[in-house]
Structures are given as structure tokens and as C-alpha cells.
Design a protein around this nucleic acid. Structure first.
Length: 108
DNA sequence: GTGTTGACCCCAA
DNA sequence: TTTGGGGCCAACA
């Protein structure tokens, strides 16, 4: 069976370690589609299904901003989930983003 | 088969 | 330094 682009994105996202974050662009690059970063975000919206077990809250845009928080049931949920994993959020932005950044290319 | 949309990214003024 | 505009490609109607 040929996994759709969305499925591949979900696979990568599930590999994100707890307490770490990554970017849409990095995931796109890991899939070999560096210019399809927008699709990665759209795939996250499909990941809303809990059965997929996709930690969409660990994925932020390229500056560590929680751009997708409005797509959660409660916008605060994304921040709360991240903070529960030890990640500090300031102004909808990940603190020490560069340190917490997880590069899929190095793990795969 | 065509057109629109989007949880983005990059570059120029 | 901050702001604005264009490009990109896959999925959906």
C-alpha cells in the first residue's frame, strides 16, 4: 500500500522525542519534499484523530511559534501539552527553541 | 481536467 | 531593524 503524503508526515511526527520540537519545514525536508512544508501543516490537521497518536503539538513553524494552536479543541491545550513535557512557552513561542529543536534528518 | 486553499518558508525593500 | 509579497506543492470540490 502506498502511504499518502499525510501518512508519511504522521510517521515522522510520531518519532519526535518527548520534550523536543521540530518544524514543518524540517519534516518536509525529511520526506524529500522541502517545498511542501504547507502540506505538512495540513497533514497535522488530519492528525486530529487520536487513533493516529500524532503529537501535533510538538510541531511548530520555523521560528518556534505555535501557529497551529487554533486548530486544537482549546488553543491553550497545545501550550499545556508542551509545558507538561518540560517545554516552556512564552508569547506562543517555544523558549530555547534552537536547543529543543529535533532534526528528523539526524534521526532517520 | 481546472481552480482554490493552506497548522509554511524565503527574500527584497 | 520590521514589514510585505511571492512561491511552493499536494489534496479537495
Amino acid at each position: 500500500m502506498q502511504p499518502s503524503f499525510y501518512e508519511q508526515v504522521h510517521q515522522i511526527t510520531k518519532l519526535i522525542p518527548k520534550g523536543r520540537v521540530t518544524t514543518y519545514g524540517a519534516i518536509a525536508k525529511a520526506l524529500g519534499a522541502a517545498r511542501s512544508s504547507r502540506m505538512v501543516g495540513t497533514a497535522m490537521m488530519h492528525a486530529h484523530d487520536p487513533r493516529l497518536d500524532v503529537p501535533a503539538h510538538r510541531v511548530v513553524n520555523h521560528i518556534g511559534l505555535l501557529t497551529g494552536k487554533h486548530h486544537f479543541d482549546n488553543p491553550n491545550q497545545m501550550q499545556v501539552l508542551l509545558e507538561s513535557e518540560g517545554i516552556i512557552i512564552i508569547n506562543d513561542q517555544v523558549k530555547d527553541f534552537k536547543k529543543l529543536f529535533w532534526n528528523p534528518l539526524e534521526e532517520i
